[in-house]
């Protein structure tokens, strides 16, 4: 599903965020990405929906070599990759409903289907009763769940999450991770960056460890820690 082959990313000015990164995530896997801040987790995630292009190496996503993807095709790639951010990236002048509906509107979904699918997504994250609320009136955990609903409403085969529990307390964090596991159980490939190694080990999934832009560990965690 996701294949990195010798991927490097160097920023103008010489800072090397990623060096010689090679790994593979199979369809239907849930994989964590861990390491200290500045280890390159975010950069790695940003390369997948082509928010940035790698300086070296190649990335193959679902059989598509991203280096050969034309600029004008990028939006269609992003529609197949659900993204979740630590700072939610919601539109604060619109209701929860409008935020979650946005990907469907962009994809040209018939108006008759939008309501049904938005409510299904909100139901999955447990926020069906808040659809008319504005994001500022929600707690951090609830806002994150709106972000997740927005990412899954188009049913993308891949979900990427960058520190989705960064600002949440442990209890809420586990709740959010539980949601990702639920999506994974129905076949979605999930890649989550998180510095919370304790939580990751407790959940018991495969995790990749990054340090200074290099892959330093690929652990198949059978959940013995939890």
């Amino acid at each position: 599903m996701i294949e990195f082959d010798g991927v490097g990313k160097q920023y103008p000015g010489g800072h090397e965020a990623l060096r010689g990164l090679s790994f593979r995530v199979d369809p239907g896997e849930l994989v964590f990405l861990t390491g200290h801040s500045g280890a390159g987790k975010s950069t790695l995630l940003r390369l997948i929906p082509l928010l940035e292009r790698p300086s070296r190496g190649q990335i193959v996503l679902n059989g598509i070599n991203l280096a050969r993807l034309a600029r004008r095709r990028i939006p269609y790639l992003r529609r197949r990759v659900g993204m979740i951010f630590q700072d939610h990236r919601l539109l604060y002048d619109r209701t929860v409903y409008a935020n979650v509906a946005l990907p469907l509107v962009i994809a040209g979904t018939p108006a008759a289907d939008i309501g049904r699918r938005v409510r299904a997504a909100l139901d999955k994250v447990g926020l069906l009763h808040r659809e008319t609320a504005y994001p500022v009136t929600l707690s951090g955990g609830e806002q994150q769940r709106v972000g997740i609903a927005r990412a899954v409403v188009t049913r993308p085969p891949i979900l990427l999450a960058d520190e989705p529990t960064g600002n949440l307390d442990p209890e809420l964090s586990e709740e959010i991770m539980g949601l990702f596991e639920a999506f994974n159980r129905v076949g979605v490939t999930v890649l989550i960056a998180s510095h919370d190694l304790g939580l990751i080990q407790r959940l018991g999934h495969r995790y990749l460890r990054l340090s200074e832009g290099r892959l330093v560990g690929d652990t198949l965690n059978d959940g013995a820690g939890g």
């Binding site: 928010l51 939006p75 992003r78 529609r79 990236r89 919601l90 946005l102 962009i106 994809a107 927005r150």
Partner: peptide, 12 residues
């Protein structure tokens, strides 16, 4: 920015 993130085309 958000629209570009979730796959809005330039035309949209």
């Amino acid at each position: 920015v958000v629209t570009k993130l979730i796959g809005g085309t330039d035309a949209f």
